[in-house]
Structure formats: C-alpha cells, structure tokens
Design a protein around this nucleic acid. Structure first.
Lengths: 223, 223
DNA sequence: TCAAAAGTGTTAGCGCTACACCCATGA
DNA sequence: TCATGGGTGTAGCGCTAACACTTTTGA
C-alpha cells in the first residue's frame, strides 16, 4: 500500500498586550497566493524535527523572538484539503503568549491589533486560526496563571489586571481583583520593591510564582 | 525549495463507561512493529479528505462505529521523529466519547479498561495519547455537559452520576448531584417517563439537553 | 491641597457541602 | 414490612460582588 504524504507546517499565533490592545504577530505576504494579506508566521517542518522544536525554531527565524522565554503550547491542527491552493498542506498551530517585546526588525513582521486583523482579509485560514488562539487564551486566563506571561518580569497588580481587562474586553473591580490574585497560592511573588510608574500611591512589584492552576478560577463576568 | 512531506495518520481515543470501568477502544496489533501490543484504532488520511472526515471514516472502518452519533473532537497532534520506527509519521489524535455500544465484530477490536491499558506495553506512543485523552475527558466533565455523551439516549440522574464517579474515580453525593444537574439550565430534558431498572423508587428518565457549557461547573472533589 | 491610584474592610447573597429526612417501588 | 435507591429541606460556610473607606504618592 502506498501511503499518501502531505506537507506539514507549523503556524504561530503569538499574542501580546501592547498599547492597550490585544495584538498578534503577523507576517505580511509579498507573493501569491494572498499577496498583500497578513498571515501568521510559520514554515515547513524539517524531517528530523519534533513539533515543539519546529515551533521554537520558527519563533526565532520568522518571528524574531529568539532566546525569549515565551509560553508556547499546541493549539490545534488544520488540514482541510483546499486550505492552500497550491498543494495539500496540513498545519499544526502553536499558541504563544509574550510580554510586549520588540519583534523582528524585518518590516514584514509586525505586531497588529487582533480587532483589526479579524476585520481584514487574511491568507489561507489564518483568521480562523487566530480566532481559535484568542479564544484559547481568553479561556485559559480563567483557570491558569498564564496572564502573567503577558507581563514583563516584574509587574504590578494593576498591570496584571489590565491584561485581563484587555484580553477579555471587560472591566474588573480593582479591589476584588487585588484581593483575589494576591491571595491565590503561588500565583505572585512579592519582590519587596515598589513603583509609581502608573501614578498614585506606590504599588508593590511582583514576579510570577510557580503556580500553574488558579484555584478557585477567575471567572469572566458574563454579559 | 523542496518541501519535506510526511505520512499523516488519524488515531482515535474512543472512551466509554462499561462494566463500571472507564474503557477505551483498542486495536490488537498482529504484525511488527509492536506485534501483540495494543494500539489505538487509526489509519492514514486520504489526500482529499478533511481531518474530521478522516476521523469519522476511521471510526466506521476501524472501530466499527458507523452511523453512530458520537461526540468527536480533536485532541492533539503527535509528531516526534522516531515515534514510528519505519518512517516519519505524524498523527492527529481525535477524542470520542461514546455510550456503551458493541464495537466492531472483529476480534482485533476490543473495549478494554483504561486502568489495564496504562499498565501494559502499548504500540508507538499510544499510551501517552490515551492518557492525554483521558485527562481531557476528565477535565471536560467539569465545565461541559459531555458526561451525557457516555449515556444512552434516555438515562437517569443516577446513571449520569455513575459516569462522573467512574471517569473521575471519586464518589459524589447523590443528593447534591441530583440538585445540581437537574437545576442546570438545558443540561437535561425530562421525558416524563420513569424506570426502576436500578431498583428502589422509580427514577425520572432524561434526555440530553442542548446546553454545552455547565455553569457553574461541576468541580472534581480535591483529594 | 487635590487628584489619582493602591490597598483594606464590610456586608449581602449565592452556591456548595454535609447530612437529616421523606417517597415510591420490588421482594 | 423491609431494603433500596430517588428525591427534598436545611444549616453552615467559603467565595464573590459591590462599594465605602483609608493610604501614599506626584503635581
């Protein structure tokens, strides 16, 4: 029996919060198909390469985010036959959550607001993949400590709260939020230092703790 | 640039509750590699076939579960280079949750208890895939109405509770469970009929409602 | 002195846990 | 009549939402 073979790519949904907006790393296509459209950074997998290794390699090569500790997890695999008009390509999407970093110096690689991207024409099924990644991120903020992956190494409770508010698109009560996250076991580690970079009374600076789960969860307010 | 191509398979983690145990559908291998080991039912994807379509086809061809309404969702993709000793094979795993059905009439296809399978040698990385599927199912019972996918078309609250108890491996309080699931919006639809098949006072028969989320969630008791 | 943001206290209400208790059947 | 499981009531408690209030800074 002959076994059909397909081309396999890894595509990256890399999200961050910058300029008060949830943003994703995009690659501007400069050739057909989809010339001029945005796409997700990605590329073909090597024959001797594990999937997470390929994701890290492409994060460095295509996204310009080498040697940066970024949370990376597998999102889903997309493989309907006509998603690439040239040939059968199956794509394993990875979701990355990053602090607000300068991306690649290439003009082709840009952070762009998710709200804009979903209103624009995208290459292939990348709008769908982006939407799935955003929804995964929104859901995971509820019951994991991943929100801190959007923050720099040291951050205040208010900065962490802004991450939740921007990713979810809902305001949260600053006082209840503060009690909740500072009370959660191993979510935050106090550094002892303070900052006034947000104005007002000085705020404690925290680092990420080693908790992965958030129990009880921080539930999104329902509309 | 030449694009490397890989063989792509779909593997199925099909779970059910039967004889008081969480069980999975297995395929007994009768050739090398891994001759005599259990494996997950699966097979190569066709070149013109979408991934969920391949999963449904293999559910019929390999698992003997054709034309059965079974919940099927993508689980994850496994692709480290040596997982198949013969050639590079990347596998997209799907998770299926089924009521207690007779599987294929082939002797090669068997329902087997998960507890036994994880103690035995499995083909390829199928033990790992099975474990991931079981963990996904356990987690989804908490915040979705998927437990009913393990039940026949009509079932009692106690039968639904047994699903939770067996999948999670923890006893639940029958009275609180009853209040919780009958109070949840659109989780269950009363048929008006009753049954005494479990002994004691007649129990209401229910059908699945159209709710997908369970809010608030049914949290596993913590040890 | 004022505005702004950090952080604490307080209260009402909801949902969960634990268990007492009653109900309806088969044997 | 008894055993068995179905189903309801209820008290206590932890968590949450809502918001009043105090603290500490920069301007």
């Amino acid at each position: 029996m002959t076994v059909p073979r397909v081309a396999l790519t890894v595509d990256l949904v890399v999200l961050t919060v910058r300029e008060q907006r949830l943003s994703a790393l995009t690659w501007r296509r400069d050739r057909d198909p989809y010339d001029g459209c945005w796409s997700l950074p990605g590329g073909f997998i090597q024959l001797d390469e594990d999937l997470p290794v390929a994701a890290s390699r492409l994060m460095a090569e295509r996204a310009g985010l080498a040697d940066v500790r970024i949370h990376l997890e597998q999102l889903a695999t997309y493989g309907y036959p006509d998603r690439d008009p040239r040939q059968r390509v199956v794509s394993v999407a990875y979701l990355g959550l990053a602090p607000d970093l300068p991306a690649s110096s290439r003009a082709q690689v840009l952070w762009r607001a998710v709200a804009e991207l979903t209103a624009e024409r995208a290459a292939f099924d990348h709008r769908r993949i982006l939407r799935d990644g955003v929804e995964r991120a929104r859901a995971k903020l509820e019951y994991t400590s991943l929100a801190a992956a959007f923050c720099p190494a040291e951050f205040t409770v208010a900065e962490l709260r802004r991450v939740y508010e921007i990713v979810w698109g809902t305001p949260l009560d600053p006082r209840n939020f503060h009690r909740k996250v500072t009370g959660a076991d191993r979510f935050l580690v106090a550094t002892g230092r303070t900052t006034t970079r947000d104005g007002g009374r000085p705020a404690q600076l925290y680092r990420r703790g080693d908790a992965e789960q958030l129990r009880p969860p921080m539930l999104r307010p329902r509309s």
